[in-house]
Design a protein around this nucleic acid. Sequence first.
DNA 1: CGGCATCCCACATGATACTG
DNA 2: CAGTATCATGTGGGATGCCG
Lengths: 136, 136
Amino acid sequence: MPTRTAAQRREEARRRYDAYVATCPSRQLLDALSDKWVSLVLTALARGSLRYSELARTIAGVSQKMLTQTLRTMERDGLVSRTVTPSVPVRVDYRLTPLGENLMPLMEAIKNWAEIHMEDVEAAREAYDRRPAAAP
Amino acid sequence: MPTRTAAQRREEARRRYDAYVATCPSRQLLDALSDKWVSLVLTALARGSLRYSELARTIAGVSQKMLTQTLRTMERDGLVSRTVTPSVPVRVDYRLTPLGENLMPLMEAIKNWAEIHMEDVEAAREAYDRRPAAAP
DNA sequence: CGGCATCCCACATGATACTG
DNA sequence: CAGTATCATGTGGGATGCCG
């Protein structure tokens, strides 16, 4: 049972944290969330837990090193949980924590936006690149 | 007048673009949106246009180089527009395009999430760092 | 004021090889 | 299978200086 309502908590957070301030922890958290791989890992786990190798296959092009590193950071930040089954060979499953499930829809929205508006962005780029340069 | 409804368009985009595929343009767009500065610029312009120097002051800690570079990329991608007033000294204003206004709330949600859940993340980090290491 | 050009380096990331 | 360790490298990003 929380001692604060969601609205109260939101207000307190706004007073305490401001991502526009370079030294604010929330700014560093925003930087961490603005990672190339975090959004993909988060959305990949949307429908339940996945094994390490399943994650690697889902997120094409990610290196072992970056996947492991991203998962470790996300685990430390409380976004994913890691479960080791000591079989032979060992089996490791990752799933979203409640905190990760809370963030996931926001990241999914960004990912969907990128897919849905890709054509608009490509059109904007072509228009920009067609602009005449200033005359000498 | 669009020839497709929003729902139709969404379905087409899902068929055509998949950010999980490394070579898909939408993956590269997602990478671009997952930039350290894009979310801050986008939300800074939420309430209207700002001059270059106002942006620089709002987003503490950003260097001239990175701010300019971020704004150029966002301009090319059709997210912001740039207006030069040829006074002396010159005045340059940036504002969100309709496309940028469409994306902004999603980025603002991420930024707010970081501010609101900072305490949860810090608690998770402390718990993680307190974990006992495996015995030798 | 609002840039762009240049230099430079730390660090993030990729590739490869090895292991419990 | 799921990593860790090591080495190589590309580039993000800061500092500085000049310009319209």
